[in-house]
Computed example of a mutant assay.
Amino acid sequence: MTTHSPALRRQGDYGVDGDFGVISARWLALIVVAIVAGLIAFTVRNLVVGALVGAVLTGLIAIALVLFVGSYLRTTRVGKFEVWSRILGDLRLRGDEQVLDLGCGRGALLLMAAELLPRGRAVGIDLWQADQTGNNPDATRRNAEREGVADRVEVQTGDITRLPFADNTFDLIISNLVLHNLPSAADRRAALDEAVRVLRPGGRLAIADLLSTNRYRAHLRELGLTDVGRRNLGWRMWWGAPWFPTRLVTATKKT
């Protein structure tokens, strides 16, 4: 039985998570830099003219913004790997499972799972929208090559509310910060319905998300899954601040 966790040191390029459909990551970075620079300028000006209250206020806002962005970047570049390494390790996979990653993106989670499947297979499905920088299937395949797991990874384009897989196909279904991007609660329920449909009896499900995780937990119970749980993944997956945490919903399909 495989009990180790996937390596934290990654060889691939996994981009930055975020909604870049309207404003690109580059422009967002420029906007943040401009705002911080403006706040610093106002702080210095207020100090020069003796407006200490104004200087403290603008200085604190600048510091808060820098800390927010720093936390966000640490989560997307480091924290999610630390957290999911432990989650996947705790699953104690045998190494021959079939694993599905819903909304795999550039493969951060997909390829970590693949490392634990020397005799299994990891399948990723995505619509390749601008939910992270450079999101496309070729980037995922390149990362799979760099991580040395391309022989056990499959990438597909598809809608997670209408999965192109037969019933009872996968031993484990995983997902990270994907379901909240679906446009409606009905779509999120449909995605859960599909995940349960393609999950084998006795198979497990682990879904991390920002919003609606209480509803995910309730719906999985309605679908008859057992050992349904929900927990906060802690500061390593804060998206800028404690009030933007990530929570993990886990469940098992009845045998």
Rank of each mutant, 00 (worst) to 15 (best):
M1N: 11
M1D: 08
R9P: 05
Q11F: 13
D13F: 14
D13R: 08
G18H: 01
D19N: 12
R26H: 10
W27D: 13
A29R: 05
A29C: 06
L30V: 13
L30Q: 11
I31M: 10
V33G: 10
V33S: 10
V36K: 02
L39G: 02
L39R: 00
I40L: 14
V49H: 07
G50I: 15
L52Y: 11
V53D: 12
V53N: 07
G54A: 13
T58Y: 09
I61W: 15
I61L: 09
L65G: 03
L65E: 06
V69D: 03
Y72P: 02
L73H: 01
T75I: 07
V78N: 04
W84N: 00
R86F: 00
R92I: 02
R92L: 06
R94I: 11
G95V: 15
E97F: 00
V99S: 07
L102M: 14
G103L: 06
M112Y: 06
A114T: 03
A114Q: 02
L116W: 08
L116K: 01
R119P: 05
V123G: 03
L127Q: 08
W128N: 06
A130E: 07
T133V: 12
G134Q: 08
E145F: 15
R146L: 10
E147L: 11
G148L: 07
A150W: 03
A150I: 13
V153K: 04
D159H: 06
F165H: 01
D167N: 12
L172F: 04
I174C: 00
H180N: 09
N181M: 14
A186Y: 04
D187K: 01
D187I: 04
R189F: 13
R189Q: 14
R189G: 05
D193Q: 12
E194W: 09
A195E: 00
A195L: 05
L199V: 00
R200L: 13
P201I: 10
G202P: 00
G203F: 12
L205N: 03
A206C: 09
I207P: 02
A208C: 13
R215G: 09
A218I: 13
H219W: 10
R221Y: 07
L223A: 04
L223E: 03
T226I: 07
V228A: 04
L233D: 01
W235V: 08
R236S: 11
R236C: 08
R236K: 12
W238V: 01
A241K: 07
F244L: 11
P245D: 00
T246Y: 05
T250L: 05
T255R: 15
